[in-house]
Design a protein around this nucleic acid. Sequence first.
DNA 1: GATGAATGAGGCTTCATTCAT
DNA 2: CATGAATGAAGCCTCATTCAT
Lengths: 216, 216, 216, 216
Amino acid sequence: MPHDSKPRWERRKDARPQELLAAALDLFVERGYAATRLDDVAARAGVSKGTLYLYFTNKEDLFKAVVRENVVPVIGEAESIIDGHEGSSPELLREIILGWWERIGNTKLSGITKLMMAESGNFPEVAQFYHDEVISRGNAMIKRMLERGIKSGEFRQVDVEQANNVICAPMIMLMMWKHSFSTCRASDPISPEDYLESFIDLLLNGLLRDPSSAAN
Amino acid sequence: MPHDSKPRWERRKDARPQELLAAALDLFVERGYAATRLDDVAARAGVSKGTLYLYFTNKEDLFKAVVRENVVPVIGEAESIIDGHEGSSPELLREIILGWWERIGNTKLSGITKLMMAESGNFPEVAQFYHDEVISRGNAMIKRMLERGIKSGEFRQVDVEQANNVICAPMIMLMMWKHSFSTCRASDPISPEDYLESFIDLLLNGLLRDPSSAAN
Amino acid sequence: MPHDSKPRWERRKDARPQELLAAALDLFVERGYAATRLDDVAARAGVSKGTLYLYFTNKEDLFKAVVRENVVPVIGEAESIIDGHEGSSPELLREIILGWWERIGNTKLSGITKLMMAESGNFPEVAQFYHDEVISRGNAMIKRMLERGIKSGEFRQVDVEQANNVICAPMIMLMMWKHSFSTCRASDPISPEDYLESFIDLLLNGLLRDPSSAAN
Amino acid sequence: MPHDSKPRWERRKDARPQELLAAALDLFVERGYAATRLDDVAARAGVSKGTLYLYFTNKEDLFKAVVRENVVPVIGEAESIIDGHEGSSPELLREIILGWWERIGNTKLSGITKLMMAESGNFPEVAQFYHDEVISRGNAMIKRMLERGIKSGEFRQVDVEQANNVICAPMIMLMMWKHSFSTCRASDPISPEDYLESFIDLLLNGLLRDPSSAAN
DNA sequence: GATGAATGAGGCTTCATTCAT
DNA sequence: CATGAATGAAGCCTCATTCAT
């Protein structure tokens, strides 16, 4: 036991929370909030159960830290892109949607969105936190973008509130899809990129061959 | 007691489970699959917990019965409507979407859709079942409708697979919304009817003021 | 395994809570509130951990039930004795003190008194409950007795509030003693009966040989 | 850093522990033995948890040190007072009781008495230690005082063993009271000074108006 | 000396499932 | 058919103690 070549632990203290957050992100994404066991988080981070509690008060605190560490920053970047954009509004719409996909949808972060949609009802405090830190800001961002396109005359005079919902829905759906049926091989795989192209196409051009015939 | 000559009334073997199925539907919708306790189901149905196990092998079996009893029949009706429709394709699209909303989205059944999106990953057997009994048939239905519109020249020549996804996504989203953030008062309420109108409008007419400018 | 002569459990349902309460009383008295493990309570009652939760919500609820079942009734009986007494006040004082000892002090119930003195500070809700259900009523009882003796001229005109405290103190002490140092053989044993005789003697007659010399 | 030539100040090996002992005293008094966490002791002393283990083997050792540092010396002083007293026995009795109150009862040290009464059963080693270092010596002291009063004819010929108990009980009770129900506002506050006056009065004069009537 | 990260046994509570009656 | 008492594995969290630095 003495002169053992390896010490029981050897990490730098500052690395530990990051390792725990990474493990927690993985497991929250894989299993959801309720089904993630803190023992497993600790085990995946290579530490014991108790260690987790040195850094996070409880499960909720851990989850909030995961969101703050991983999701919130991306929102900030998106806000910068919108505020700094100088090209056309359709271009910006495209950039935001595809960027969203690349930065969140196409990463494990999409699992957090899915988790919140799935479990917010059972964990109201977590839901409130997520709403305040992520959803509100995301919605405001999209609406700002739409208003800009309307003001410039590039977009029709649509209800931005509803258009926001219509735009977000497929994004969210895609993220949910990735983490629900697609994970259990029960469903035909969806190509997100093709899906998004179809979506943007329909969004900009409509489904009708001749828009003037949409009298109904 | 065992060798009783003959019971006076012969109750169909499915008669009693109705109360259990109703209670189970309510609770699965309210809390999700994992978070629903069988004690509560039995209590809400007014029977003992043991009785539940007389009719259903386990939680999974109970859930499948709930789906078969409530969701599967609605799919059948929708198939009939499509196959029997004689009007225009935009009209049918409208009818199917709004009918979907009335028969599922606007009822507690939407909670089943939400539940499956939320928890399929943790319960693969349930997911497979739901995919086979509900999702496959629903997708086939939508695609049949789109192909009909394309063949008749009413719709553009879109990829029906993707268009199906694009069409379903907002429906599903709306159902999820009803059962996630909207339930915890964290978010501004969404009017489903307005949302669907916006969606159908965008779907048919597109977002652009002048479609010819959508060069990207 | 089949045809086993003994079923896994065989008690009448109504007996179970009583068995649990008895086991809980024993263990609370032996170890105190915090140190009593619910596993041990269940084990001593011959059931599994989960069974305990069929009858009691949690540890606090179990403890309250123990008090209500065992301590509260004794208070009621003492009240009856006082209200129905027809002899002299010194006699009644003697009867109440010795009766208290027989019914509580000399039984394991004294351990509840000790427990509350020991741990009320760490469990405020439990303390409040015990104060309301036991202490208030006990104090009122003693004071009523003293006032009666004063009114009849048998007792000096002492401050009943203080006299109550002075009277209760040795009783409580005796109970605490039984459950603190005396249990660990660290101290010389105290004979409670002798102690109480000494106490009543001092209480009635005072320590002074000649009371009139108590000028100090 | 290790091979520093010589520290400028040589701290007594007992210098640092003082802060730990002070913190430990506070917390033991506030929460009791079992409920006091060593993390909190270290934190209140402004050192790390590991440091605590440099000076004390474990929790028990820490507690013993607290007692030796704070309680044991007071016993010694009381012994000196008794042995040096030259006035009347009632006066001495009064002085000892009130002095006890001032030096222990009315300070946080009373919490140690309460703690030992409360938890000695769960920690036999600690109990034995406390009995040997504090209780035995305290009892001997009181008994010596009583015997002196009896020998001088000032006190009745009571059983000193029992009288010792009767005298100590209210003192201990008062200390326990301070640290049990009085701390949680569940009970009417007791004025210790008034209580002690009542006690001494009753102790010296008895409760009876006319002692000769106490025939029982 | 001093640190503080790490451990892991242990306690409370929940809930799907079983089974004697 | 129906009951509901019982089980026990599992999950969250705490805290005295250890030990590499």
